[in-house]
Design a binder for these strands. Sequence first.
DNA 1: ACTAAATAGGATAAAAATATCCGATTAAAT
DNA 2: ATTTAATCGGATATTTTTATCCTATTTAGT
Lengths: 145, 145
Amino acid sequence: MIFSKAIEYGIKASVYVAKQSMNGYRSNLKEISEHINSPEAFTAKILQQLAKGGIIHSIKGAGGGFALEIKEMKKIKLVDIVLALDADFLNSTCVLGLKHCSETNPCPVHHKYKHIKRETLHLLRNTSLLEMSINLDKGLAYLRN
Amino acid sequence: MIFSKAIEYGIKASVYVAKQSMNGYRSNLKEISEHINSPEAFTAKILQQLAKGGIIHSIKGAGGGFALEIKEMKKIKLVDIVLALDADFLNSTCVLGLKHCSETNPCPVHHKYKHIKRETLHLLRNTSLLEMSINLDKGLAYLRN
DNA sequence: ACTAAATAGGATAAAAATATCCGATTAAAT
DNA sequence: ATTTAATCGGATATTTTTATCCTATTTAGT
């Protein structure tokens, strides 16, 4: 409804890796894709992008995998993950796809949608990876069902 | 950010046809695609689906085109247009794509997103084609820029 | 009847998103 | 050093979405 598959997988993977890191475990590709229920090879690409984008750390070689530190999880927000996977996610923000939709040049749903847009942006900017992974860890949230 | 191109075009086309109908004009494909800035042949397919879905009326033959009546515009909501073009739009409603995301089985953003989802649904269900086309007619909204 | 102007509908093409495969590289363990 | 377990990166395949093209059908006007 709002994110592409790539972004869905990317968020879930980040949350899983964060949760495992919180508990001192490093996660590898196979484990990640199993726990978030995503195609392995495709997930590999996404993890690569996340690593390049500074969201997670990748450790190569035997016993390697993906991990990140608690202080990083606190700083990383949902919006950072999204932008690491789709740099111009925030540029196409009009519901009807108008290039220059604005207060003075609104599409027919602009005024009714702007509150929702504002709240969505707020959610993306203020939800940290840490809080999501804590919820996962506590069993208050799930990544597959 | 939320709709596919097909749905974007579909909404704009419906609003344009409605506005023209309000003023007693019937709209044809060429005119519509010019005014909403969409590819003509693709728009033709979408208009067909909208007609089949009972959103607009299509009149075949010379002097034909698309139109609808004021009392219909009042009844037709944004959600009807969306569903006419994508029947299971409302079935994939979890931000992270979980099949059975719910209060008791939430994804990590469920609780923060549910208000937004509720408002979005409210907007879709309560925004009528009539009000959108009135705004367009009054010059308070635009379909291209 | 004929012509012209429309939409309908089927076939196809192009582009983007999703997904897979495989060899190269890295690093730990023996 | 060799083996083994990982990620990296490039090439390719598949699927879905977006877009186009062409013929058939319908209808108004002459």
